[in-house]
Design a protein around this nucleic acid. Structure first.
Ligand code: MN
Ligand code: MN
Ligand code: ZN
Ligand code: ZN
Lengths: 157, 157
DNA sequence: ATTTATATTGATAATGATTATCATTTCCAT
DNA sequence: ATGGAAATGATAATCATTATCAATATAAAT
């Protein structure tokens, strides 16, 4: 289980405490930043944003908290190929829900999409079942990304 | 054709020269290694393997050649979450063809699978078409990975 | 074959994101 | 309040990947 205790959590604040961790000011700040943005922020992005509200925060704490959040499943970590990890709140009030990504190899822009998600998830479910049977592999997560050029980057051949 | 030493795949020669590059001994060695393995090697893995045949090769050359190969589309670069890029020949005689990956988060093992590929590709094609229409995004590539635990790693709960 | 221009190489240093240390501070249960 | 565990932040260390740059290898031109 990702939770230290056996308690099931509501959301964020409660979800965090439910895992047996303390909800501190730096952690709250980091969660706030993640909850208020629509972007896919890097650790340093988050550090700078939190720094506005809590100037004493250290970059190390940001990395540590993100590691914690990823481990507990509250946050997803992505690699879009620009050399730094990027983070996104797994789900919550402001979340658009489960989605996949379009990654522009021209400008690095990331587009969330939920279109066709149902069909994709349905196929993934079937695929998972088959793979589990054949390879005895227990799937816990999946990653789907499309790479290409966004509208703005198609002009500059 | 003047193949310096390698027994390597001639099916790459034209593509290489067609792009204005020279087929040198270090490059041939790197391609040989990629062509002979079924694993997903890191740059350093490749460096060590090529070093057996060409001890004077430098790690820098490996990185540069891989960058070249990825850029020309002959090689795919993957990130499986272990902090280093891994490489795989895009296609060729010994290739199993287009496939996706199962990534064990327990031991790092990578499993190639081609099962359900047809169905997946078919759905991806449709999804691509819809995404192109809605987001004006020109898809050139896609990435699908399943994360979970391999058979050996499921025992150690 | 000799020359010439260019592509390629490899040793080395630099970069930059992420981790490891560790002393200090904060939190919580007693 | 108090003691112990958890969390923090400044700093140094890792480590994969890139940037430099002088030396070498290659292909074309003479
Ligand atoms: Mn997203
Ligand atoms: Mn593979
Ligand atoms: Zn773009
Ligand atoms: Zn495993």
């Amino acid at each position: 289980m990702p939770w230290k205790d056996g308690t099931g959590p509501p959301w964020l604040h409660g979800k965090f405490k439910g895992c047996g961790y303390r909800m501190t000011i730096p952690r709250q700040g980091i969660l706030d930043v993640l909850n208020e943005t629509a972007d896919h922020l890097s650790a340093e992005d988050i550090y700078h944003k939190v720094h506005g509200a809590y100037p004493s925060i250290g970059l190390t704490t940001v990395y540590r908290t993100l590691e914690l959040l990823v481990h507990t499943g509250l946050v997803y970590r992505f690699d879009f190929g620009d050399g730094r990890a990027r983070y996104e709140l797994a789900e919550g009030p402001k979340s658009i829900g489960h989605h996949h990504h379009l990654v522009c190899t021209g400008c690095g822009r990331i587009i969330d999409y939920t279109d066709f998600i149902e069909e994709e998830i349905e196929l993934l479910k079937q695929t998972e079942k088959g793979l589990t049977k054949k390879y005895k592999f227990r799937v816990t997560n999946h990653l789907i990304q499309f790479y290409g050029l966004c509208e703005a980057c198609q002009g500059t051949g």
